[in-house]
Design a binder for these strands. Structure first.
Lengths: 178, 178
DNA sequence: TATGTCATGTAACTGGTTACATGATTGC
DNA sequence: GCAATCATGTAACCAGTTACATGACATA
């Protein structure tokens, strides 16, 4: 049960779309995978160095003012394909919001209501972001677009579900007082 | 940014409902918080020991054949209330499924379709579990019930969203071939 | 007496975060 | 000349997992 770092997949994946600096990689991940993935510099740079050492990634200082671009090698692409087929190991669930609500009686209904309303706001903002993303991807179709739309759809359905849930939850709390 | 262990909240929370052994605590967490929380023995026992050392939890060998029950003390309850109001620090998102689908073009449409169908099956099973849970909680109302129903509702809305998303995603992939 | 469940723990590991340090480049 | 952004890295820390070890009790 090796539990190999998933960061490798994200890094190779990012570079498979387009060569980039480590910094740009981080940006790209936050901007376009942000709603389902996260990487910190503390992971990206060491991973990049390790990938370079094993020839899965190549450093090309081409046309750069500062920093170095990384591009994926043929070996790197093969490794990426291989790792993508690995069974998905999802992080064990740890939803701090639901943990608090489960013990909501100790927290009090008012605090719970606030927590839920915060989710509503967040979900509304998220829906705007997704609409934006969706239009960007649709405007510039490429072989990846369908898959990107699928991940965006996941975000949208999730956000809508949160709105519906929040509504139901607030109703349960409202009924309580009467 | 202390990043204190969330395990403490789960353990104190569990014991606030009912005194239990460490083993039973783990069971209770998997069974009733399972869809949004997880704890391993490797976390539970050390946490229990630390809580006992600071007087937030008490060991009572009452009426036990083997092992010792733990019960929460007044200090423990105070600490729990305090920790419940802490800002929620959610784990950074790392959804292995969506990461794979984002690079779905490299994986191939067939593999992606399989991944999505697995989600559908999972979601159907989850909905059954939630229905079961819901009827158990409704059958035996207590001051916690409303809050427990809220967390169950979150699971239900999430699962339904996954079904809708899966449907949309499969449609996108189907359109592709034509 | 063997098997399964209840029960408690520890040791090693590691993925990932945070915080810090440093410097180049760009634009004002 | 200054501030903001681009860019690269490292070191310390830690939460949490995995694997291992051990033993009591019930029951078939």
């Amino acid at each position: 049960m090796s539990r190999r770092s998933q960061t490798e997949i994200a890094v190779l994946g990012g570079l498979s779309v387009e060569p980039m600096t480590g910094y740009a990689l981080r940006q790209a991940i936050t901007e376009t995978l942000g709603h389902f993935w996260h990487e910190s510099f503390g992971q990206i740079y060491p991973t990049l160095a390790a990938l370079e050492a094993s020839g899965l990634v190549r450093r090309t200082s081409a046309g750069q003012t500062s920093g170095s671009q990384f591009e994926i090698t043929a070996d790197g692409l093969a490794r990426l394909r291989e790792r993508l087929t690995e069974p998905i190991e999802s992080a064990p669930p740890r939803n701090g919001l639901l943990l608090r609500l489960f013990f909501g009686r100790l927290l009090g209904a008012d605090v719970c209501r606030n927590l839920i309303e915060a989710v509503q706001e967040r979900a509304h903002l998220d829906l705007e972001t997704f609409a934006q993303l969706r239009s960007e991807v649709s405007a510039d179709p490429d072989p990846h677009s369908d898959y990107w739309l699928i991940t965006i759809a996941a975000g949208e359905h999730g956000a809508r579900a949160q709105l519906e849930w929040a509504h139901e939850a607030l109703e349960i709390l409202a009924r309580q007082r009467n």
